[in-house]
Design a protein around this nucleic acid. Sequence first.
DNA 1: ACGTCCTCCTGTTCGC
DNA 2: TGCGAACAGGAGGACG
Length: 267
Amino acid sequence: MPELPEVETVRRTLKNLVLNAKIINVTAIYDKIISGDTNKFIDAVSGQTIRDIGRVGKYLIFILDDIAFISHLRMEGKYNIAGPEVEINKHEHIIFHLADNRELRYQDTRKFGRMELVSRDTYLSEPPLNKLGPEPFFADAEILYEKLKRSRLPIKSLLLDQRFLNGIGNIYANEICYRLKIDPRTPGNRLTEKQTDELIKVAGEILNEAIELGGTTIHSFTTGGISGLFQTKLSVHGQKSCPSCQSPVAKIAIGGRGTYFCKNCQK
DNA sequence: ACGTCCTCCTGTTCGC
DNA sequence: TGCGAACAGGAGGACG
């Protein structure tokens, strides 16, 4: 369940568990998870200690001694901690063997997630992270408004474009449009400057609320994975009726993604 | 440069 | 009930 708040929750939890742990070796059971040469990745990471875990949008950044690697969980990626005696399950693909005899295991049912070596000091200015737009917390309204003016794409598609804003996924795109009371099909160039300000503010609010709720439910990290309480706070995504007017929530496809909104409240 | 479609995978839900 | 189709929280690349 990795959108920005989920990834932030994973980052905090993982940092508590593996900060200053030394990676002895790596087993790549399904090596397409690793972008680039697998052996190069393993060689670069082995013998290094995890000095920090950062996050940019939906990317986790593992900062090691001499190098770093990014990890994108995509749809289903998770990290488990287990002892070597625990049988590896069929969806655990990358195993980091730690010096303290624990294993950090990357699990991903759909195998969409990716890991990639990056420079420890300049990863922000190199691909793929250099293509990302700002997180909503740091976005400049004028710059976004200029981008909006140039696009006829539905606002919801723009919210999902990580070059526009970074960290928003399908659920939050739906929720942001709802709180803005804006129809998700509205072309970008129809938004006013005032609505752009509001969009940035609402996006940041929703992500922050979700981070707070996500942080409250990390108890079963190694067994059940992570499921944030924000799921109970959703207004339209996957919902039947509008919390405000009780009319049925519409479901359509925008850019092939499931889109939920209230035709009565969102114009 | 921009927008649309396809692809990577597996598991679950939906509809006939 | 059974079975194939559609869909699921993502993003990068091909193509027009």
